[in-house]
């Protein structure tokens, strides 16, 4: 693509041509989080697992299935499997299925484990899905458009960037350690021995670069006392999108009210 065509892309609001990715980022966050939270009030693990599946479908529709799964499988393994095993093995229950030493697996403990992990997996799925379907730049633009101060949105954006920068810097330091003959691969102890000394310079370097970065932003008139413009803009939110978000929020509200009523009765 030539530079003129590239530049002219900014003349129109950014569109991805995808029903999920073209949702306003704040609305997308609202929908996903509302769905994630709803599992805590529905209190049925089939509902939670259905949401987990739904998030996979949404990720596929957004064309981000691979990205979503590459992060979510760790959540599945760490929270899903681990929590399930612990909860199922040690929660109390009357209808015993298996018993060995301190391990008591019962129908109740399995139900309790399934209930817990369905909540954790669906809520974390909502967050991972949002992260994997959202460009941070779009999100901060949406925040600013919604009235969040410029400084706050920049802090959000640069914080995420700093995390990825820290990862890159750590990699560079590890590579240079390797070049000096220090073992950085191998078992957990060896890795820890290589990583721990790196943490000090890494954090100090990050702190000192924050100062220079803030000067750099000042040099770009970040705090100039004028109304800022935006090169990249997002489309205006459609009425149907607004209505859908309200619908989801009302559903969540109804679920919460329903749960409170059941609890009171």
């Amino acid at each position: 693509m030539d530079n003129i065509t590239f530049a002219n892309q900014f003349l129109n609001p950014r569109k991805y041509g995808n029903i999920i990715l073209d949702l306003n980022p704040i609305n997308r966050l609202n929908i996903f989080v509302a769905l994630g939270i709803s599992t805590f009030f529905v209190n049925n693990y089939w509902y939670g697992f259905a949401l987990v599946l739904l998030f996979f479908v949404i990720a596929a529709v957004a064309g981000r299935l691979k990205r979503y799964f590459s992060v979510y499988w760790k959540v599945l393994l760490l929270f899903g499997l681990f929590l399930f095993v612990i909860k199922a093995a040690f929660s109390p229950g009357e209808h015993m299925i298996f018993q060995l030493a301190g391990i008591h697996i019962s129908t109740e403990s399995i139900n309790s484990a399934l209930s817990l992990i369905s909540k954790v997996l669906s809520f974390s799925g909502a967050i991972v899905l949002f992260v994997q379907t959202t460009e941070w730049e779009d999100f901060t633009y949406a925040l600013e458009h919604a009235g969040v101060p410029h400084v706050v949105s920049f802090v959000v954006l640069s914080s995420f960037q700093t995390i990825s920068d820290l990862g890159k810097s750590a990699q560079v330091i590890m590579e240079s350690q390797k070049a000096r003959g220090i073992e950085t691969d191998g078992n957990l102890v060896k890795r820890a021995k290589a990583y721990i000394p790196v943490m000090g310079p890494l954090v100090l370097n990050a702190i000192s670069s924050v100062e220079e970065k803030s000067i750099a932003m000042d040099a770009r008139a970040f705090s100039a006392p004028v109304a800022h413009t935006h090169l990249m803009e997002l489309p205006e939110v459609t009425k149907s999108e607004k209505a859908f978000v309200v619908f989801i929020d009302l559903l969540l509200l109804a679920t919460i009210i329903g749960r409170i009523v059941i609890w009171l009765l």
């Binding site: 003349l11 800022h228 413009t229």
Partner: peptide, 15 residues
Amino acid sequence: AIGLENLGVEKGEII
């Protein structure tokens, strides 16, 4: 474009 956005320059002129 960051500096120009911060100065409130219009999009066409930024480009």
